[in-house]
Nucleic acid binder design. Structure first.
Lengths: 177, 177
DNA sequence: TACGCTTGTGCAACTTGTTGCGCAAAGGAG
DNA sequence: CTCCTTTGCGCAACAAGTTGCACAAGCGTA
């Protein structure tokens, strides 16, 4: 699972506690790999057991901050994994199921839901574009790491733009006939 | 969960057995909502208990074909659900995690994996376009149901095209500097 | 009839992801 | 100092999705 690797990546950027990790997932990493704080704590425990990361603080002390750092085996594991291959994740979209259902039923209008999605995608797009403008202003000098991070962000932008274009297309198409 | 609704949709198109459903999921529905045969059988059992569908055949007879049909409550449930609202599913992509990891490590080259993904997306795109051409040839007269089904298929095409464009862009960008 | 292959069905066990709650520590307000 | 709120941590239970196996029936073949 990629959760391990996402956590390793985040911890390499800056060692921190589980709660801080959860916050970072909500902000940046989570845009392309989501995780709840429970998943994160569970995974941190497993990774600690496997010797990928280490913590200062007693493992059993509840309510006690535990600061995690990546160990050499953790870094090695991430390197191996990043150089490896992965599958494509197929689309899994409720809206499309709704439309397929509407096609069979013939009694349901999905255009309102389409417009709502258009709005939602627009919001997300604007958020991504704001981040891109803030962190990677056009014309600035960029390192290789920056290029990669920007590419990831661009994936999100392209993704949202394509959904937006599709929504527009579907809404315009049948009506314009 | 949309699995219930996806099954209802498929059964409305044509009543059939669990195995046949599984095959249909692999072929058409599964392009935007996947399910294994286990999920399907489990769900069929629950839906039968809830009175959404009915089967000819004994529930406990193993190895015995059970043919399912949608009942009125099932159709009503699908109508209600299709007219409802849903959340956006955020991106969840391993490749992007790999790239973020590579950005932090600085020792990993992801271009080979990018090219591989480009190829995979290209394959999927061609499959979708073949289906579109076969089932909805351009210029033909189309019903409202056809328009909806085509829109769903178009979503897949747009999706794959946008990933392809992104792969191309990322591969060309940093190299062309 | 006996044998093996394929198909349809389903149990069991596991992993991953989600939700809700509880407890401990820290820090501010009375 | 005591009370209360916030923050960090984690258990427990559940829902969804995956994997592997097992059993029954049908069918072709010897």
């Amino acid at each position: 699972m990629s959760l391990t690797q996402a956590i390793l990546t985040s911890l390499l950027e800056k060692p921190c506690t589980g709660a801080e990790l959860a916050r970072r997932f909500d902000k940046s990493l989570g845009y392309f790999w989501q995780a709840t704080h429970q998943q994160i704590y569970r995974e941190l425990g497993a990774m600690e057991r496997d010797g990928l990361i280490a913590a200062h603080g007693l493992p059993t002390a509840r309510g006690r901050q535990r600061h995690f750092t990546v160990l050499a085996p953790g870094r090695a594991a991430l390197e191996t994994w990043c150089a490896g291959e992965g599958e494509l994740r197929p689309i899994r979209d409720e809206l499309l199921v709704r439309m397929r259902g509407a096609a069979v039923l013939g009694t349901v209008d999905v255009s309102a839901e389409l417009r709502r999605h258009q709005g939602l995608h627009h919001e997300v797009l604007q958020r991504y574009e704001a981040i891109a403008e803030r962190d990677f202003p056009s014309g600035a000098q960029r390192s290789t790491a920056d290029e990669l991070q920007l590419a990831v962000l661009t994936a999100g932008i392209v993704y949202e733009k394509s959904w937006l274009a599709w929504c527009e297309d579907v809404l315009a198409g049948p009506a314009g006939d």
